[in-house]
Design a protein around this nucleic acid. Structure first.
Length: 209
DNA sequence: CTTCCGATATACT
DNA sequence: GTATATCGGAAGG
């Protein structure tokens, strides 16, 4: 990590090209409470309107609007009525592609992250997309931020190089459409990578007594 | 470790 | 009305 944000040109490429190269980089969020930094160990690529698993598959809505804007910005969404998840917008403006930040290792601000995640072990602080957001205090106000701005509150810094064999890929977690597209990327053997869960449709409440 | 399940905003039928 | 890019707690092994 050299303290310099990844340049916007880094994100202005096909999302499946950018995603594995994002592993090992560092997301840093500074608030009035302090600074927490996470080294990314697991991400997923979502390719806009052509990808049935993407939030942009059915076009623009109020929620996904920033996906249709320029790269290098956050797309934060609220799901299941209680969790936030964060993406980085990729590709030229209008591509509506993004990379979901699924998990990472807290490398600075451990005490603050732990205070935001009571009861969690160090390994679990950012092990999962909603857990990562909670540990870094990423929520609606962080939607649409420019992570390339060196003076902004939320930045993505270049990480130490990985050995090429360290990156693995497989199907994305919990998605129904596009389940054969291996666009989940993670650092092999890293304990902070989240557990894989296949998509499971919820059972309807029975009307039977 | 595992399975089950509830919480409930947002988008869609 | 139904589905979902999730999580944490309870209960079982």
């Amino acid at each position: 990590m050299d303290g310099t944000p990844l340049p916007r040109t880094f994100y202005d490429a096909p999302v499946e090209f950018v995603a594995p190269r994002l592993l090992g980089s560092v997301l840093v969020h500074t608030t009035v409470e302090g600074t927490v930094a996470v080294r990314l160990t697991e991400v997923e690529a979502y390719a806009g309107p052509r990808d049935p698993a993407s939030h942009a598959y059915r076009g623009q809505t109020g929620r996904n609007a920033v996906m249709f804007g320029p790269p290098g910005h956050t797309y934060v969404y609220f799901t299941y009525g209680m969790h936030h998840c964060v993406n980085l917008v990729c590709g030229p403006a209008g591509t509506a592609s993004g990379i979901l930040l699924r998990a990472g290792e807290i490398i600075a601000g451990h005490d603050l992250a732990a205070a935001r995640r009571p009861g969690a072990s160090a390994r679990d602080l950012a092990r999962g997309p909603a857990r990562l957001c909670k540990a870094l205090a990423i929520a609606r106000p962080e939607n649409g931020l420019d992570v390339c701005d060196p003076d902004g509150p939320l930045r993505v810094l270049r990480g130490d190089p990985l050995v090429p064999t360290a990156v693995r890929s497989g199907p994305r977690v919990g998605v129904n459409g596009g389940k054969d597209t291996p666009w989940r990327f993670w650092i092999d053997g890293d304990p902070t990578v989240s557990a894989y869960r296949p998509h499971v449709p919820k059972r309807r409440p029975s009307t039977r007594p």
